[in-house]
Design a protein around this nucleic acid. Structure first.
Lengths: 347, 347
DNA sequence: ACGTGTTACTAACACGCGTTAGTATACACC
DNA sequence: GGTGTATACTAACGCGTGTTAGTAACACGT
């Protein structure tokens, strides 16, 4: 590898000082450089194929122009992978739009929960997005209190750390209202995960509230917990089918879990939606290709990524909005599994 | 944000020089520091919660300890997203294993094809992985000739740039042999993409060779081209069904395309595998949940990511292997769509 | 002729670290 | 008592840039 040209080389070739090179190439405003000199510098830089050294620039400017996306891979990692492409695309597009790079840092199950701290403390990045945060993380709170720019993807109850998440409760309500509109009155639920997860509690609360709206009392027997994966859905559905009085519809707060529930129904010889209506949540890539195609609540992964980065960068640049808790709306996607006819042309 | 401690602060607190601090904290070998001093430095660093500044370290060492994954989002972007979680996980795990960070840089369709060049020229990274490279990229060849560490994911015919890819030909052969073993003799094919893509040509070649092995002549009428998406598969299958003498099995070199083909078969009232056997390629997340579950050729996304990074880092560190063209083996995953019984316990 | 202001630049510092070359002391050996 | 060597450190340089403070030349009004 031949020696890279530095700004000194450009200066020499253009017959000016290094300062002038810097002023010209960075287009510093309110500085007087003659058009001829400007041209000479530009030409010299072009001729040498000069690119300023990122490390030097970072050091002197104190800005890394980089943000990190910290991706916790916990017990829910397979579930969360479903959103990775969309979220990452939203995040990188927003980052690029504002002139930032994105460092991707998964935290594997065998790593310490705060292995990401060095990214902040070592000034590798100007800010962090933490996806799938743990609440018992003292390092997180320290950093936040010191004013380090931080945005969570997913909520952390009991803190006011800026966070971006989907509106789980209203999403669940939309699904239930859809089932109610189709005439169902005995509606069961399988949660996406144990109730230790806040998203599970919120989706359950949406279910409860939507029933309450129409005067249907909450019946604990109709609710079972899923645990991210297919198998948990299969077991939960089996439990519901063992009930003396079965529900006519089940809201399953995770499409991945719904896949297992559908299997249980097939194993019991029950048809969907004729014998039982099913509504899901998440709208993962697979959902539209299931038989029957799953009616579900779409989670805007791209929007979550974009919003998180946009919020983070505003915080980094000292332009934080007054409201730093962002909740994105979901959208009900009607397909086949509830028996409603889909709008023309939609898949 | 309070002022970050620097190595000078640590030195002052420990009552030694900055040099000593650096020597102790970096565990420089063959240098004599008394155990007491060593302890004092460590204690001071701990007390100040000192983390060395990454930018300064990069500048002085000339190493960024960062590699970039450049992800071209072309016409095949939806297809390629299916492998992103696996590939990224493999890449980041390998990177971390060798002490590197990963910068993720998608190139959107509206960006210049060589928008990634500044990452290399500006010394943002020590090396690059280019996923989905374009062959007409002069900047790529320049960089390679200058010795900048580079690894491609996906092949670029006519160059010897280090590359990691899946063995498309042998994967296709495995699928065809499977269909042959089940008694099929008239086997059609729908390619994953137009033949401008090398992977398409290679999978087609595998199909051709596997048939040739058993003396079945290549019949052009049985081959139609897909174009990454579902709809192209639907149309290609319709064309095959319009044939006077239909195939009894079709190898579809992309699961996403196969989804559309399955739909076409359903629309024609044909059962899979009874009326027609279907074998796919890629093993995307959806494949196992299709009805019928798709027998397909598994692509090791994690392995591709890991191998690419491992190769890249060996090149960066001057330890390049003699063979820099890596081809990973695929694995046939037998499910339901060909009518063979799956091995016990496998899904 | 002389201050004042504008234009067009440059010298020199600082960012925080790794590292090389060098110094001071202690100890051993003949 | 001088030489040599190991030990335990430190002073100072340089990485490549952005930026601040400053200088030289020139025009202009009085």
């Amino acid at each position: 590898m031949p020696d890279r040209p530095t700004s000194r080389d450009v200066a020499r070739l253009a017959g000016v000082s290094r300062t002038t090179v810097s002023l010209v190439l960075n287009n510093v405003p309110d500085v007087h450089i003659s058009p001829e000199t400007r041209q000479r510098v530009l030409e010299a830089a072009r001729q040498l194929n000069y690119y300023p050294d990122a490390s030097a620039r970072r050091l002197v400017s104190g800005k890394t122009s980089t943000i990190a996306l910290v991706w916790h891979r916990g017990p829910d990692r397979t579930y969360r992978d479903a959103f990775l492409p969309g979220l990452l695309q939203g995040a990188t597009r927003a980052a690029r739009h504002y002139g930032y790079y994105v460092l991707f840092r998964p935290i594997e199950p065998d790593e310490s929960d705060d292995a990401w701290v060095e990214l902040a403390r070592g000034r590798h990045t100007d800010g962090l997005i933490l996806s799938g945060p743990r609440s018992d993380d003292a390092a997180l709170l320290d950093l936040y209190r010191e004013g380090f720019p931080l945005v969570l993807h997913g909520q952390l109850p009991g803190t006011d750390i800026p966070a971006v998440d989907v509106d789980n409760e209203s999403g669940a309500m939309a699904a239930i209202r859809h089932l109610l509109a189709l005439g169902h009155r005995r509606i069961g639920m399988i949660t996406n995960a144990p109730l230790a997860y806040i998203a599970s509690r919120q989706r359950l609360e949406g279910y409860r509230r939507a029933l309450e709206e129409v005067g249907i009392p909450f019946d604990e027997a109709l609710v079972h917990c899923g645990n991210f994966d297919e198998e948990s859905g299969r077991q939960a559905m089996q439990a519901l089918l063992a009930l003396a009085e079965r529900p006519t519809a089940v809201f399953i707060a995770s499409d991945m879990v719904a896949v297992g529930a559908l299997r249980a129904l097939r194993e019991h010889g029950l048809r969907v939606p004729e014998d039982m209506a099913i509504a899901g949540f998440d709208d993962i890539a697979t959902s539209r290709y299931l038989t029957p195609a799953l009616t579900t609540v779409h989670v805007p992964a791209f929007g979550l990524g974009w919003s998180a980065v946009e919020l983070l960068i505003r915080i980094i640049e000292g332009d934080a909005p007054s409201e730093t808790q962002v909740r994105l709306e979901t959208e009900l996607v009607v397909r086949e599994s509830c028996g409603a006819s889909a709008p023309q042309g939609k898949v």
